[in-house]
C-alpha cells in the first residue's frame, strides 16, 4: 500500500459531519423477526472517525443490527440515528457481468454519472487500492482478496462517511485475511471514515477497531465494551492484545 496523501480529494465529496454528536446513535433498540426477538435493547454511540467492532456468536443478530444502521429495515422499537452508511456485504456482492472498474463505479452511476465519467472517477482509486491493470477483469477472474478490494473501493465511492462492514473477510484464507487487515488499516488512514465492523473473529476486531463491543446470544445485548489502545494495524501478538483477547473471549463465553 503506497501512501498517498492526496487521496481523499479524488474520492468525491468528503464525509459529511452534519450531525453534531455521534455518527451512529442507537438508543434502546429492539428488533423482532417474526416471533424471534433478535435484538434485546442495544445502546451504542459511535463517534465520527471511530472504528467500532461488534463481536458476537453466530446468529446473534449482528447482521440485523447493520441492516438497521444502513436503513434496510426499521427497528421494532427504539431509535436509530445515523448518517448515511455504505454497506460492505459479507460476500462481496460484485456484479458478475461487470468488470472491476464498473463495479467500483456503481455508486457514481446510481448518483447519475454517465458510464465514462464514472469509470474515469473510479480508476485512480482502484489503482491506489492496488488493482492497477485489473480494471477490465470480471469478478470471477479476480482472487477473493482482490474482489474485497473492489468492494471496498465501491463502498468508498459512495462518498458516505460511515462504512458498515458485515464480516467482510470471513471468506478469505488466514494469510490473505491478515494481509487485507493491514491493507484496510492503511486505506482508512488515508481515507478516514467512521467504521462499524461486524465480525465473529475476535482477532480481526482487536487488530482493526478502536473499541470492541461484545454481543450476547439472541436477543442480543452489548455485554462488554473493550477500548483497544495503540494505533492500527496492531500486532496481534502484543501483550496488551493477548490480554484483551482473553477478556473478549471470556465475555463471549459467559453470554
Amino acid at each position: 500500500m503506497q501512501s498517498n496523501t492526496t487521496a481523499p480529494a479524488r474520492v468525491g465529496p468528503p464525509p459529511e459531519h452534519t450531525t453534531a454528536g455521534a455518527a451512529v446513535q442507537l438508543v434502546r433498540v429492539h428488533h423482532r423477526l417474526g416471533e424471534v426477538e433478535v435484538l434485546g435493547g442495544i445502546d451504542l454511540a459511535v463517534a465520527h472517525g471511530e472504528t467500532v467492532a461488534l463481536v458476537g456468536p453466530s446468529g446473534c443478530g449482528k447482521s440485523t443490527l447493520l441492516e438497521l444502521v444502513c436503513g434496510l429495515q426499521a427497528p421494532s422499537a427504539g431509535r436509530v440515528d445515523t448518517e448515511p452508511a455504505a454497506l460492505l456485504p459479507q460476500r462481496d456482492a460484485l456484479l458478475p457481468w461487470a468488470d472491476a472498474l464498473d463495479n467500483a463505479a456503481l455508486p457514481l452511476r446510481l448518483q447519475g454519472a454517465g458510464r465514462g465519467e464514472a469509470r474515469g472517477t473510479a480508476a485512480p482509486l482502484l489503482a491506489e487500492l492496488g488493482l492497477e491493470g485489473f480494471e477490465r477483469a470480471r469478478p470471477h477472474e479476480l482472487s477473493g482478496g482482490m474482489r474485497q478490494r473492489v468492494a471496498v473501493a465501491r463502498a468508498l465511492l459512495t462518498g458516505r462517511g460511515l462504512l458498515c462492514l458485515d464480516e467482510p473477510f470471513s471468506a478469505l484464507d488466514a494469510i490473505t485475511r491478515a494481509d487485507t487487515h493491514r491493507w484496510l488499516a492503511g486505506v482508512l488512514a488515508a481515507e478516514p471514515r467512521t467504521v462499524l465492523l461486524v465480525t465473529h473473529d475476535v482477532e480481526e476486531a482487536l487488530v482493526l477497531a478502536d473499541r470492541v463491543c461484545v454481543l450476547s446470544h439472541r436477543p442480543a445485548r452489548i455485554v462488554t465494551e473493550l477500548p483497544i489502545p495503540g494505533t492500527r494495524p496492531r500486532d496481534p501478538a502484543a501483550d496488551e492484545l493477548v490480554a484483551l483477547r482473553r477478556a473478549a473471549l471470556e465475555a463471549l463465553r459467559g453470554c
Binding site: 444502513c70 436503513g71 434496510l72 448515511p84 452508511a85 460476500r91 456482492a93 456484479l95 457481468w97 459512495t158
Partner: peptide, 28 residues
C-alpha cells in the same frame, strides 16, 4: 441474487435503477 438487490437498496437505488443495473443484465 437477493444480496445484489440488498446492496443496491443500501445505496438508495430507485426501482428503475435496480432493474437497469442488476435485474435486466442478470436476465439476459
Amino acid at each position: 441474487d437477493a444480496e445484489l438487490l440488498r446492496l443496491l437498496r443500501s445505496m438508495d437505488a430507485t426501482r428503475w435503477q435496480r432493474l437497469r443495473f442488476v435485474e435486466l443484465p442478470a436476465a439476459v
